[in-house]
Design a protein around this nucleic acid. Structure first.
Lengths: 337, 337
DNA sequence: CCGGGCCGTGGAATCGTTTCCATGGAATCG
DNA sequence: CGATTCCATGGAAACGATTCCACGGCCCGG
């Protein structure tokens, strides 16, 4: 009853296992008669090759691993989708792991991916070199996407964090804002660090208030965005504009503004990092720093195939684009200061 | 240079391969001295067992397959996350496949999952029995989630489609609405069919207009929601309320309303099926038919482990809950009729 | 003091596939 | 026409782990 192996196919077709294997894998040295007999036997038996056995014999598993912080973040959901679709083009199956913005879970997934002998690994990593040591030591072809780990030679595809934030700050100060509240990402991620640095240098450049109290450190999840908005709105000198470093924290922050009756676009300006479809529905629609997520995922796979082929591709930085919408109107009605 | 196998570990520890394997898999019949030697050798060599080889010998792969229509749909992203987290509890790795709301891609993923010899399969299927034939024939333990295929004995975890839609329609008619536009899901899915049937029987029950022109058939993706809203708003007798059968189509429809200046909660009432965080941020916040997605994913895994264990668990129907928000105000300001 | 259990161990079979190698027959070339 | 090449084929090794089985040494009880 159980498994139908290549041996049963060979027996039924009246050929040897070797010949059956050659026919099924399209090896040229096969006769017409053997080919038809084997194919017929395979289809009547419903033969399905065992991927484990095949991977064991060949070196490759035709599988790539993808480790992302959280699929529930629409940005990463889009990215996962883009990677998966592109991987299909190369006949790769994508093994997906959700780190839950947690370094320990991330490392466990790295471990599993290595155990599964993935042919390559794409990750939006967090933490430092130590967390990646096992991966780097294993020598498995790796590409970073969105986030990177400094001091490695791993190729990456990342957004232009600095320019995106810079444009947003310039836009806000251009509208007259001086006190900009910033809900930052965790400093254990490269994106968290780079965006914060860009924010601070943009403040200096534009002569906006560089007040440490205006910066709140979140964790890229929506609850921390809410907490950040609460803290910033309660300051003695509250900000007249809010900038949140990712979409989930933006959702949390917008929720708090609504709940407190602080009207976005009127009482306070708002810019979100990352564009998600729902942001254009909020009334007023949110001004965002947008990226081409599809390109990001697709390029990551392309780079990975190059690494697998033994090349050492250049890292790619994708441009950011500021999309101005109703949440940052020309005539700011700032509350204070 | 390449792989470090259990043989290298055994050699280094000065024991046989058999003993090394026993130590590493925690078999009781091992001596203290062998245990320490093997463990030390394994860690200094950085030994990582080859999952393919192990799966080949044992019958199980410690892997389950999850085939969903689209991760970019926040509902399924949450579901994927819930399944994955629960699967971890059982030490299962989740292989994820995105069908893209496309039957052909779905079937290809089923094929891959079977080839990978997953220990079990969780799917939100579309299409009919024919598409599932390979899966059913293979005998791999399977559970349906969210959607089902009729005339199978596969256990499932589904939302209470009928009651959810019924409550929504009652709510709207209770507010005085008679012309309710319905953006339906594809009839190739059980959820699409059940929700439409529930809508139609609720119309009859509440004496609302049963006008075929008020029903638009979408595909659960946002563009079709936009198309539906456009069509329905352009009717000679446009609806005074809109009900969309999933979150992505709701996003599309809300976008069209905004773009046309049709004020939700004022010019038109709106109810969305499925709750996503951003819906509470839209101004006014959307009334939704909500579910406990975490429970859904978690239960699906629980059922699957039972099927794997040879039991035949009962299917579960999870309750729907209507959450009334600003998009369906008490005093409807209907545009027409 | 001897025989039966128990325990730790190593050799070898096994899982299902791919691929190397040898073989024999047909075809081609000089 | 003989020698070389080519091709389809089957046997067997290999991939890396787990596990069955046999074996020898100990311990213990009769």
């Amino acid at each position: 009853m159980r498994s139908v192996t290549i041996k049963s196919v060979a027996d039924m077709a009246g050929v040897s296992v070797a010949t059956a294997s050659r026919v099924l894998s399209g090896h040229p040295s096969t006769s017409e008669v053997a080919r038809t007999a084997v194919h017929e036997a395979a289809s009547t038996l419903g033969f399905r090759p065992n991927a484990q056995a095949r991977s064991l014999r060949k070196t490759s598993t035709q599988t790539i691993g993808l480790v992302l912080p959280d699929v529930r973040n629409p940005f990463f959901a889009d990215l996962a989708h883009a990677v998966e679709q592109r991987a299909r083009d190369f006949k790769y199956l994508t093994l997906f792991g959700n780190a839950n913005e947690d370094t320990e879970q991330q490392d466990r997934y790295f471990d599993i991916m290595l155990t599964q002998r993935v042919d390559g690994l794409i990750a939006a990593p967090q933490g430092d070199l130590a967390d990646l040591q096992a991966v780097l030591d294993s020598g498995v072809p790796t590409v970073f996407v969105d986030r990177v780990i400094p001091d490695t030679t791993v190729p990456s595809v990342t957004p232009d964090n600095a320019t995106g934030i810079q444009e947003a700050v310039r836009h806000l100060t251009g509208l007259g804002h001086r006190r900009i509240g910033y809900i930052a990402g965790p400093q254990s991620t490269s994106t968290g660090r780079e965006r914060l640095a860009a924010f601070q240098s943009a403040l200096a450049e534009t002569n906006a208030d560089d007040d440490g109290a205006l910066i709140f450190f979140g964790d890229f999840q929506s609850a921390s965005g809410a907490a950040g908005a609460r803290r910033l709105l309660e300051l003695p000198q509250p900000p007249t504009a809010l900038l949140a470093a990712d979409s989930l924290m933006s959702i949390g922050a917008v929720g708090v503004c609504n709940e407190r009756g602080v009207a976005i676009g009127k009482d306070i300006a708002f810019v979100a990092y990352d564009d998600i479809e729902a942001f254009s529905l909020i009334n007023p629609a949110l001004t965002v720093i947008a990226h081409d997520v599809n390109a990001m995922g697709s390029l990551a796979v392309d780079l990975l195939t190059q690494v697998i082929a033994g090349e050492t591709p250049e890292s790619v930085i994708l441009p950011s684009r500021l999309i101005v919408r109703g949440s940052t109107p020309s005539l700011p009605g700032g509350t204070a200061s």
